[in-house]
Design a protein around this nucleic acid. Structure first.
Lengths: 188, 188
DNA sequence: CCCCTTAGAGACGCTGCGTCTCTTATTTCT
DNA sequence: AGAAATAAGAGACGCAGCGTCTCTAAGGGG
């Protein structure tokens, strides 16, 4: 009647749980992810989850950074603005694909406190790309209203929210070529 | 032992139910709207709801046009493009406000079949505004990529999804002045 | 080596979903 | 008008999943 030899604790246990969340997301998606399911997959009890997170949304929010890297650590620098932008947007799509697209919708419905920090970071990244392009002489100025700077990220997030499939690459090209680059020209 | 004298049927009953949905949305919001709650408020049984709609999302989707008018019937024509655009965006915000902002997030999470028709309509409206502006000589051309045309509506919907409050008027002004008008200039 | 924290296991009550059944009011058909 | 068909009103039912609670025992810290 053994059963268990060793009992996980603290950070190690927490890592296993967050892994289980990712596997559960990949398996059944966000809509059908349950606390029971995560606990079972992590071979632990619900109480262990509730000791750490108040509900499903908090649990999933905690799981996100556990596997995805931070985009801030992968800011593209290809030597050309258009390529930089496309690379950045493709990174965002890549993260959407890893998660499964219904996670975004699901979290939006349940999370009431969206962290503005997340959005500020994207502004800073885009501004960096623009300033580099100014230095290279590609565009006249990076001195744009904040809202204009973030347009490509905003439009892409909008597409992610709408679609249940990973956003198509043609859409990214459209955002850059049909909207953002002309917008930059219009501000110049 | 009377209780009931008259029994509602068909369209009259349906109208009462959809009214009840709106009242329930105003009262408790989308997240806490239940089939039981709607049935009780409409003084009928759940079965009557399920006879007509398969689930909560379908029920709410059906309720939306019951009170909101169609934006297509209120296309602004102020004689100036900027004013037309702001008026249109304000109409959209007005509808968001009537609903309560969590309805958008809630429906997104549960509805898998977004109707592309809804989005095509907004493209046509914006194109109309642009073509009028061309006729007046305000802008050189309305011949833009589809994605560029819909930018203000897309950005506003993005804001609606993000925020749990009605979108501020300053945001609308920013979308028009900082993004759309420069974008049109850049395409000219 | 003892104690204290907390993992593991599962029972519990509750809410809301979606289905089903039954009676009876109202409409439609003949 | 009367009979048959339709659908409303009422509520019970089983089920899933939430979040809470309790209990035992493992293993780390002093």
């Amino acid at each position: 009647m053994t059963g268990e030899q060793t009992r996980r604790r603290g950070a190690a246990l927490e890592a296993d749980i967050l892994d289980a969340v990712w596997e559960e997301l990949a398996d059944v998606g966000y809509a059908r992810l349950t606390m029971e399911g995560v606990a079972a997959r992590a071979r632990t009890g619900k109480q262990v989850l509730y000791r750490r997170w108040a509900n499903r949304a908090e649990l999933v929010k905690a799981a996100l950074p556990h596997r995805t890297g931070f985009i801030v650590d992968q800011v593209p620098d290809t030597g050309e603005l258009r390529e930089d932008l496309l690379t950045l947007l493709r990174l965002m799509v890549e993260r959407q694909r890893e998660l499964g697209p219904d996670v975004i919708r699901g979290l939006l419905a349940e999370v009431t406190d969206l962290d503005p920090k997340v959005f500020g970071i994207m502004h800073d990244i885009l501004l960096t790309l623009l300033q580099r392009a100014v230095k290279r002489g590609e565009i006249p100025t990076a001195d744009l209203p904040r809202r204009a700077v973030t347009v490509p990220a905003d439009l892409l997030r909008y597409e992610m929210v709408l679609s249940l499939d990973p956003v198509a690459d043609a859409t990214l090209v459209g955002i850059v070529d049909d909207v953002y680059l002309p917008l930059l020209a219009g501000h110049g």
